[in-house]
Nucleic acid binder design. Structure first.
Lengths: 353, 353
DNA sequence: GTGAAAGCGCTAACAG
DNA sequence: CTGTTAGCGCTTTCAC
């Protein structure tokens, strides 16, 4: 009644364990007949190879580690599902390393047994590797890819944040907005990632390119979190000379802006236009105009990339640019002064205070 | 420059590998001096034991599997962080099994090598085990706990959904509401779980206990998803004899109700009261009244439970009841007719159509 | 208290 | 094509 091992299968069909191993893994040098008998036997006995044993002897653990700052962001969870989907189909399991939940924090990341002796590859979301970590990955010859933001010397997949940010800004500028605010996502958990920085840079650059000097109160930190973004937006909207449009660094932050605007009695898009980046599952419901990207697909690409590395045929070290495109919904419209007079009096607040 | 093994440590301090093993794991029969030397050696060499090797020989893989329907729900991600936090602190790694991403789907769950030969325990979220699965767990003597909804014969942790639902209903009823709608969460991915059912039962039961016959249009399926809930709520609010209050089966569904109400030009809570269950990270920002539970803590409890099982001192098979309590915010108020006349004319819509 | 030896279940050369 | 022989790195009796 114990779990069957490779010996049981070998005995069952009268071959050696080596042959069972070869047959089941699709290796050459096994006659079709034998292979079939082995397969049948294994299936009947309910045999599954032990990852520990094959990991020990073969050096392949059939597992990859996903390193994320936290689980609380839609983008990450979508990537994870994409990754897990293709990995599992290939017989790989997925380890989760949540930095937020890791007491030792990041510095000991690679002293972790998981990453050194348990995973065959690493996929990191929302973080860069340090030079040291990169060297360590190379020395143990471990395929790695980071999702979000290109990093020199490491394979990565992600959108062009600068271009996406500019496109979002162009949309707003084309609608006649001049006073445009930005909610930036800053680093989290001591992670360095360029995503938030590039989007902010796109905001500032687009403004300057149009001869607009961004007022200090038009920039605020949203930390990629909705509640923080709402608070920041509330302050921004109350400031003197508030923006007529806000480009949020992510859809989740954009939701916060929408909520802040509603509470402030502003109509969207008549009084305030809002645009985000992501196309979150909920953006349609919010009527949010956004720059759509597909994290699910990015996860699949990342998974395939490490799988390729594992199977020898490594792809060149480069950044796979994921697609982005504008999805216009109801949260953006002409600037108040641009095509007509601004609303004189805001309607009563809809979300009670 | 290769990764150090137990032999390197043994050589380094002139003892046998057996002693190193004992010393590092805190086993008895090692002199304090030796233990200290071994520790020092291991630290200096940067030695970490191989989970594959110890899993193979000792039978402990130091990993637990978390099985979830999908990652797209806040409750799950919060539980996962709680679980991962305590597990990692104890030297355990966390495997993720996302049913939505698993091609073979659920039936082959336990034919999976992961669960049989890689994980020492299982924590399942939002699903019940079938009788067969339960038997399999028992036969391999694998600690298991399910989070969300009590299940006979398996350890579990979760709130009392019936009681939580009733408390939510009592809050609404006490405010004078009689026409109360419910957005139910139905099973997903073929999973059976009582959570949604119990909350719906609480809704129906509370109504009946107060002599109110629930109209058919007061119940709709929200599938635990915000966009679906929004659509369902929109239809509900448009129906003849619409409810004056809605009890949503989760906060995410409640957000959908809020959005639907805003679009319909209803004021919250003057025209419509909304209550949810969870106290989602975003609920404060939505001003949502809700029944708070703490999924993070539930995850920690689940992790400790399987850890206890692993270390021999198993807790009795029972359901750990997690706390719930009403958090009043701005989304609930007196029923329109109860304390004064209903608003005669709704204000203009704030979210544009 | 400590070491030697025998595996855990599999894969990877070699022989045939 | 297939079997034999060594381990992979650790844990675990059983001696000493």
């Amino acid at each position: 009644m114990t779990v069957p091992s490779i010996h049981d299968v070998a005995n069952d069909c009268g071959v050696s364990t080596a042959t069972v191993s070869r047959a089941l893994r699709g290796l050459p040098n096994v006659s079709p007949g034998t292979r079939e008998r082995v397969r049948e036997s294994a299936a009947r006995l309910g045999y599954v190879p032990s990852p520990s044993a094959s990991g020990l002897s073969g050096g392949r653990h059939h597992a990859v580690a996903i390193v994320i700052p936290s689980t609380a962001r839609w983008f990450y969870t979508a990537v994870i599902e994409g990754v897990d989907g293709v990995l599992r189909r290939e017989g790989y399991d997925t380890f989760l390393v949540i930095l937020a939940a890791t007491a030792a924090g990041r510095e000991r990341l690679f002293h972790n047994a998981l990453l050194r002796k348990r995973a065959d590859a690493v996929i990191a979301l929302g973080i860069d590797f340090t030079a040291e970590e990169r060297e360590e990955l190379r020395s143990v010859d471990m395929p790695a890819v980071i999702v979000g933001g290109p990093v020199r010397g490491v394979r990565s997949v992600g959108i062009d944040d600068l271009a996406a940010g500019r496109a979002a800004m162009e949309h707003l500028l084309a609608l006649g907005h001049r006073r445009i605010g930005h909610l930036g996502g800053e680093n989290e958990y001591g992670m360095d990632h360029s995503v938030g920085q590039d989007r902010a840079r796109a905001w500032r650059g687009s403004l300057e390119r149009h001869g607009i000097a961004p007022a200090p109160q038009w920039y605020a930190v949203g930390s990629f979190l909705m509640p923080q973004a709402k608070a920041a937006a509330t302050a921004m909207l109350r400031s003197a000379d508030p923006p007529t449009a806000i480009f949020a660094g992510s859809d989740e932050m954009a939701f916060g802006v929408v909520l802040a605007a509603l509470e402030a009695g502003l109509r969207i898009p008549q009084d305030l236009s809002v645009i985000g980046i992501d196309d979150h599952d909920w953006s349609e419901s919010f009527g949010l105009t956004t720059m759509r990207q597909d994290p699910f697909e990015q996860g699949r690409i990342a998974a395939r990339t490490v799988l390729d590395g594992l199977s020898g045929r490594a792809t060149p070290i480069r950044t796979v640019k994921a697609e982005v495109r504008l999805v216009e919904r109801r949260s953006t419209g002409p600037a108040p002064g641009a095509t007509g007079p601004a609303a004189l009096a805001p309607p009563p607040a809809v979300v009670a205070h």
